[in-house]
């Protein structure tokens, strides 16, 4: 959660490295600064756990964050890895906020931007121009995750039935 005090200059510099933030009008950019903070993670450190309240949306700036689910009998299964500029926890700003459906853990030393989900949602509600940019980006994220999930579901590399002569 964004309760830590940040050096705003560092935060602004960090946010300016995110390509789609360049689409934002200056006042929108400033609004996002107000609801963001930086968070550094050590290798192995959890960003959030399955079941946690969805209070933040994260953008990975450096490192690598694994999305993992605990499966009884199989332990933790890593289902996706987020790399720099990837968004993690996108469902936290969908209208029906539930709880985290997967955990996230840094597998390399990582730095993320944490955006307060409720404040971001409210900002998007109040200013639809900002909301359009944010939700268009999220639509891209959802589409690519959906394609990834479809291809994973197809189990492309499963051993096929014998077909040689």
């Amino acid at each position: 959660m964004c309760d830590q005090t940040d050096d705003k200059t560092e935060l602004i510099d960090a946010l300016q490295t995110i390509p789609w933030f360049h689409e934002l009008a200056p006042d929108h950019f400033n609004r996002l600064i107000e609801l963001s903070c930086l968070q550094d993670l050590e290798t192995g450190q959890e960003l959030f756990r399955e079941g946690d309240k969805e209070d933040c949306l994260f953008i990975v700036l450096e490192g690598r964050v694994a999305i993992e689910m605990r499966v009884p009998g199989r332990g933790k299964v890593r289902i996706y890895t987020a790399e720099p500029m990837d968004i993690v926890g996108w469902s936290s700003i969908t209208p029906v906020v539930r709880q985290r459906t997967a955990g996230a853990r840094a597998v390399l030393p990582s730095r993320v931007v944490c955006l307060n989900a409720q404040k971001l949602y409210n900002a998007c509600e109040e200013d639809h121009d900002l909301g359009y940019v944010v939700f268009r980006r999220l639509a891209n994220v959802v589409a690519s995750r959906l394609l990834t999930t479809r291809l994973q579901l197809l189990d492309m590399f499963a051993h096929p039935a014998a077909k040689e002569g």
């Binding site: 289902i79 291809l151 189990d155």
Partner: peptide, 16 residues
């Protein structure tokens, strides 16, 4: 396509 707890590399599909 799917990693375990020891895997610190990428998890995802080739086209993506």
């Amino acid at each position: 396509d799917r990693g375990d707890e020891k895997w610190t590399g990428l998890v995802g599909v080739v086209p993506l």
